[in-house]
Amino acid sequence: MLSVVGLGKRHSGALRPLFSELRLAVGSGEVVALVGESGVGKSTLLNCIAGLEQADSGEIRIGPDALDMHRLDETARAALRAARIGFVFQAFHVLPTLTVAQNIAVPLLLNRAPPAEHGERVESLLRRVGLAGFGPRWPALLSGGELQRVAIARALVHRPALILADEPTGNLDPRTADEVLALLLERVREQQAGALIVTHSRHVAECCDRILTLTPDGLECAHPAGPSQGGRSHHPEPHGGEPTSPPALGRGLGGRVVQ
């Protein structure tokens, strides 16, 4: 679903590149955590993958027919994002002036999906994220957890190949965070999308299939040991992480295996 090869980025005026020759891949139905210290370039990497920042070198291919995001112009990148990527943010970013149903329908509108399908797809996703009947409500009346569920529904409604999530549980209390994360992983796997989740939370990382740690020297790959094991094994991979094949099933939340 995502293949990054030889990616390099240097901020203008910086002495050394933020990262170079990065290599990583996310497979279908695979959920990958991206961790690392603050300032190491996680958000920049995510922005480069989403085409929001221009990388200096390398290739970024998303989806089955593998267009290189890096080579596209701004408009084509926007179109590719609309078609292939779903986003979930720490701050939810739900449009306050649109209803819940309208918020979820935005990617369908951007992809020019037939209007007749909108209602049904939105309703079905609302049910799946546990917000049945919330369609006509205004975002201002929703709790943080509910807002993040709306954001998850919006990220999935157009069946993207890749979900990019930036600290998706960062603004939630632990219980709600667990629920929202379980929902996100469940739906990603159900739709056989790939997901890259930037997080500082060890707990969130350990719920993923693989953990990529971004360091000034490159990416290190690890497979989570699961909450019960309380640790993880390290496999230094300076050139990034390839998907395990077949994708490792995510370790359960609270012992639950999500498939």
């Binding site: 990527i85 935005v106 919006r154």
Partner: peptide, 15 residues
């Protein structure tokens, strides 16, 4: 600006 940025991130073309 945040709303427009979100729409841009979601794929609203710059035009």
């Amino acid at each position: 600006s945040t709303q427009f940025a979100l729409l841009g991130v979601l794929g609203l073309p710059p035009r």
